[in-house]
Design a protein around this nucleic acid. Structure first.
Lengths: 157, 157
DNA sequence: AAGAACATAGTTATTTAATAACTTGTTCAC
DNA sequence: GTGAACAAGTTATTAAATAACTATGTTCTT
C-alpha cells in the first residue's frame, strides 16, 4: 500500500503538533469541545498515512484503549466531519485529517492507488466549473465530492 | 425519498426497451455475454428511480427469484461497471444504469437529497479542469469520482 | 462427439462499514 | 448544587461487500 514515506507525516512531528494546536484553538473559538477522547483519535488520524478506515483507526486506538468500540471512533469522526477537522474519502470509505480546516471551501482529493497517499487540493476552478454546470440544470449544490484516482508523482518512476 | 415522478422512467417504458436493446448490441459487439441473469438485473436497475443500493436491488430480484443472494447482484453489478453499462455512486453506495454507455468519458452526478433523483451529466469542462489541476501536482488520473449533492430543479419549489 | 479450458452462477460463510438504542458519566449555566 | 445538555460507554444490530468452494454451462480444440 505504501511507497517511500519520505514526504509523509511522522508521528509526533512538528507539523502535527502545529495542526493539533490549531485544531484546539479552532474548537475553542467555535464553541466546540476538543475532549481528551477526541484529541487522542485526532492524533491517530494525523499520524495515518494517506487516509485511514474507521476500523483501522479503531485498531490503533485499542492499543492504548483496549475497550474502545466502533461508536467511539465514529462519534469522534462525525464530530470532526461536522466541524471541518476531517474529511471522508467516499470512494474508499476512509477518513483524513484536514490540514486547513479554518477555510470552508470544498476540497478535492488526488488518491494514489499505488502508495495510498491522499493529497488534498483546493481548486476554485473545479468547484466553479461544477457549480456552473449545475446551474445549467437548475441544480442547487450543497456539497461536492471530487476524488481522482491514479498514480502520484513519486510512484510514477 | 421521492418527489413527483413525472419525469422518471416507468417500468417497461419505450425508453427502457431502447436502452436494453442498445445494451444487448453493445455486449455482442464487445464480446461480452448479456446473460438472462444479467438482463433481469439490468432491467431492475433501469426501472429504479434515481440510483439503487445493491440490497434493495436484491430485494426486487427476490420477488421473481426467491433464492437470489448478494453475490448474484454483486456479480452482475461488477460486470456492468466493468463494461460500462452502469456506474456506482460512491457517496451513497448505490448504482445507476448508464444511459449512454457507448461513450467512455467520465461522468458526473447531480444527486437530489430531497427526492433521490440522480442525474448523470458529462461535462468535458469539469473533467479537463480536474485534469489540469492534477497535472500541476504531476498526478496521473485514471478514474474520477465527481458527485454533487443538493436540490434538483423540481424540488426547489 | 469428447474433453479440456474457461466463464457463469449457486451456495455458505465471513468480513467490513456504520448505526441504533440504551446507560452512564461530565460539564456548564443558572 | 441541581438539572439540562452534551459526551462517552455498552450491547446489539443493520448494511455493504467479498471469500471460497461447488456446480453448471459455453466455447474451443482435436
Amino acid at each position: 500500500m505504501h511507497g517511500t514515506k519520505a514526504l509523509q507525516l511522522k508521528p509526533h512531528s512538528d507539523e502535527q503538533q502545529e495542526i493539533l494546536q490549531k485544531a484546539k484553538q479552532y474548537c475553542e473559538q467555535t464553541g466546540n469541545r476538543f475532549t481528551p477522547s477526541r484529541e487522542k483519535i485526532y492524533k491517530l488520524l494525523l499520524q495515518a498515512d494517506g487516509s485511514i478506515g474507521a476500523y483501522d483507526l479503531l485498531d490503533k486506538l485499542k492499543q492504548t484503549d483496549s475497550k474502545a468500540k466502533p461508536p467511539t471512533v465514529y462519534r469522534a469522526l462525525d464530530f470532526f466531519l461536522h466541524v471541518g477537522l476531517a474529511h471522508k474519502v467516499e470512494s474508499t470509505n476512509t477518513f483524513k485529517a484536514c490540514r486547513h480546516f479554518d477555510c470552508a471551501h470544498p476540497v478535492q482529493f488526488l488518491i494514489c492507488d499505488y502508495c495510498g497517499d491522499v493529497r488534498e487540493i483546493q481548486s476554485k476552478g473545479i468547484r466553479d466549473t461544477l457549480e456552473a454546470q449545475a446551474k445549467q440544470h437548475e441544480f442547487k449544490i450543497k456539497t461536492q465530492t471530487i476524488e481522482a484516482h491514479g498514480i502520484c508523482q513519486r510512484c510514477q518512476s
